[in-house]
Nucleic acid binder design. Structure first.
Lengths: 345, 345
DNA sequence: CTGAAAGCGCTAACAA
DNA sequence: TTGTTAGCGCTTTCAG
């Protein structure tokens, strides 16, 4: 069966049921009252022909596709996968279909994908972060496609945000470590190029340290890809100077730091405290269990879908929502010890 | 801006450029030779109006959407996320857009999603596994939508398969453990309901054990959801009887077993050998590093996209491909010790 | 090389 | 309650 057979159309159904196509459309859409008799005939005809309607033609006529787009940096990061999983599930429940594209963390590429999404006629679009090419905003405004930026929340943003405040979340981390007596703090951050969330996390750490009279000099922060292996490689360099606490850009990076510390015989949290960000499900299971920031990717994905669809369905602007993060203190952070872990180890 | 502004159409471009819509279509599709002068006028008009074409209308006219569908059990499993990430990337590179739906591991739900995919006019469809409702196969044949079943390979399957042999992969695991002297083997499997891959892995273990004169009685295999926490809970029960080796349905389950063993003071691999399945990137980093089966989700996703698109573009049947899995022996498996780990621990 | 016109499958007035 | 008739925005013969 290499040739695409011509499938039944509404017209075929109409002919078989001896009604007009308009009537078929009506029973399919429950749009107006239909006599039981006619309705039954139509339903039978549909069944008999195995008719499946053409959503594309429908969208063309209705000027509404029933699809939502989502453009994310990568799927190879459990936290994005979890958020999109929830977004898709919610969209599905509310009658929408998901079109998904991955930008590979490249904003120019993201722009091209936005155009493609508009071509596809998505009714709403999910984007990650608050940093996008100007052309993206221009196109979105021009076409009136509603969109929501997630994984971040900036009160000053002109776009709708359903997300959390990355900087503030890091403030809580710094406060926690400071309260435990840590003064020698370094950071293993995510790569900030084209990534405002990673940037905000660095900024959050830095500004909070400075507000306490400390600092985060450039040589105390190393940026790495979100990967355990890469994180391990950078661990030694970032702990070269005396360091009692290491703040990681996300949980995956923290796993790398923790595993490498253990391999090098550095006691966590005795010699070194480590924190993560995301609270992946594994983080609670490790030993020592990881102190981290819970971001709630699942509720975020769900809420983003709801807000977006509500706006689309009611022709309103998308509403923002600020989600709260929570510092989850577990076993990788402890009061700084007398003989702090240092370069002499 | 709550109202969707009317956006420029091909007709607007045509008017501004003083040509016919057919010409606009031609320059957009590079379909036939155009005089440089006319082409320039069209391009200018497009730019001036910020024209973006309507893929839906295009699909209706061409009877081809340029989209690929994918229906997967869940995204909350790194291995699926990785496979889909590769599938999407490849589709994108070849000019296709991905429509993604999650079936939540429910075959009836999957059927509904297949119908929706057909409504959307996908040119090709990716499915996971070889077990689907009869109606799914019927609809797919009826409409002529090409599809490929992944994450499994069965030479007897009537559908195209791009995947690996789950049973055979487990044979290698059993052989490995047997070679190390293990005779008391139990299994912490994935849930086999609506999941032929999980089922095949159990079958693979069982048939290989039996071929060696051993057995896998029902009380030696416990099925658990793919979650570290759930796996930990089941660990004690499955190791109740004397057991020297534990085969896990995937890496996540193996993580749970490993962590719980460590917590209970069971030495791995001294007292108990543990194996996983998938070879997630973390598996190589743990200590002890996990012995597992590498399945290559990334090349599989890529190949599935290529095979599917090739078939669509050339009106051919989709070709199957059998991918090889590889047993990666690391540190969680070892020769069975004299005083085997047993119920007396 | 370019234009005119038909039509992809559906919905939405407007009539009846 | 039902049918008729325009399109929705695009591609594609067929002429010229």
């Amino acid at each position: 069966m290499a040739l695409k057979p011509r499938t039944a159309t509404q017209l075929d159904v109409a002919n078989l049921a001896k009604v007009s196509t308009a009537t078929v459309s009506r029973v399919l859409n429950h749009s107006s009252a239909i006599s039981p008799n006619v309705k039954a005939r139509v339903l039978t005809a549909i069944d008999e022909l195995g008719y499946i309607r053409d959503a594309g033609a429908r969208a063309l006529a209705m000027q509404r596709s029933g699809t939502l787009g989502a453009i994310i940096p990568t799927l190879n990061n459990a936290i994005f996968a979890e958020g999109i999983n929830a977004f898709e599930r919610t969209a599905q429940e509310l009658g929408y279909t998901l079109i998904l594209s991955v930008s590979q963390q490249n904003l120019d590429h993201e722009h091209d994908l936005v155009i493609k999404m508009i071509e596809r006629g998505v009714d709403g679009l999910l984007l990650v972060g608050n940093r996008h090419n100007d052309a993206v905003y221009r196109r979105l405004d021009q076409t009136g496609v509603r969109y929501v930026c997630t994984w971040a929340h900036d009160a000053k943003s002109l776009s709708a945000n359903v997300g959390f405040d990355n900087r503030q979340a890091m403030h809580a981390v710094v406060d926690h470590l400071f309260g435990l007596g840590h003064r020698q703090i370094a950071m293993l951050a995510g790569q900030s190029l084209d990534n405002d969330r990673a940037m905000d996390r660095i900024t959050g750490v830095r500004e909070r340290l400075e507000s306490k009279g400390l600092s985060l000099p450039a040589n105390r922060v190393i940026e790495v890809p979100y990967s355990v292996a890469e994180s391990r490689k950078a661990f030694t360099a970032v702990t070269q100077k005396p360091v009692t606490a290491l703040i990681c850009g996300n949980d995956v990076i923290a796993y790398g730091a923790l595993l490498e510390a253990q391999k090098q015989g550095v006691d966590v949290p005795g010699d070194l405290s480590i924190t993560g960000f995301d609270d992946l499900s594994l983080s609670a299971e490790l030993s020592p269990a990881l102190t981290t920031v819970q971001v709630g990717a699942e509720p975020m994905g769900e809420l983003a879908a709801k807000k977006l669809i509500y706006a689309v369905d009611n022709q309103l602007d998308v509403e923002s929502a600020l989600l709260q993060t929570e510092l989850v203190v577990r076993e990788t952070t402890a009061r700084v010890s007398i003989q702090a872990f240092n370069v002499l180890r």
